[in-house]
Amino acid sequence: MSDSLIKLEGVTKVFLTDEVETHALSGIHLDIKQGEYVSIAGPSGCGKSTLLSILGLLDSPTDGSYILNGRPVQGLSLPERARIRNREIGFIFQSFNLIGDLTVYENVELPLTYRGMPAAERKAAVTEALEKVGMGHRAKHLPSQLSGGQQQRVAVARALAGKPAVLLADEPTGNLDSKNGDSVMQLLADLHKQGATIVMVTHDARFARHADRTIHIFDGRVVQEQVESDPTR
């Protein structure tokens, strides 16, 4: 394993609603190396999605520090956060979050257009990503014309296309049947083998075992870290 890609120190997240303070995360310390496959597990409401949101710069910690790829990112401006999301992070969501009015190709292309990448480079990157997830033949389809598993593959391609430093997957199989779920997990495992750093939130122990390491969260705290003996199972 190489150097630290993600480093959280003392990260806390407090939500204020109607004068009630809810501590979603309390003093999280986390260190994820380049090329590592980490799963975050825990019961519903434990704070794992909040943690993933902070990792993905979708949300900011109330306290603590976050260093991504050697750079502190907790106090960045909104445009700068958007730029880092675009270049360093690839998202895979439980509900796929494809844009229904865009074709498969355009969905995968979207983050690259925000990057200002020239059209020819975009085309090459999109084609490569779609081929990697086995969806090259469906480039002109709309998401509504695909099965759930296919949609999630497209979402993975979108996450991959920009060659991000890390893939963040939030319950990537949550909306899939077991066959499609297995297929997507296999895809992630293959990507990991090819060197991708993956952080995945799941509450399914079966899928958590695909990761090198599983971090268990309970009530906003890391309560256990478990290293899998054979992550390829």
Binding site: L78, P79, A82, R83, R85, N86, R87, I99, P111, R115
Partner: peptide, 16 residues
């Protein structure tokens, strides 16, 4: 709202 959030998550700035 979700589409916009997604675009933002994928790196679209506010100006964009």
């Amino acid at each position: 709202a979700r589409e916009i959030a997604l675009r933002s998550a994928l790196g679209a700035t506010r100006g964009r």
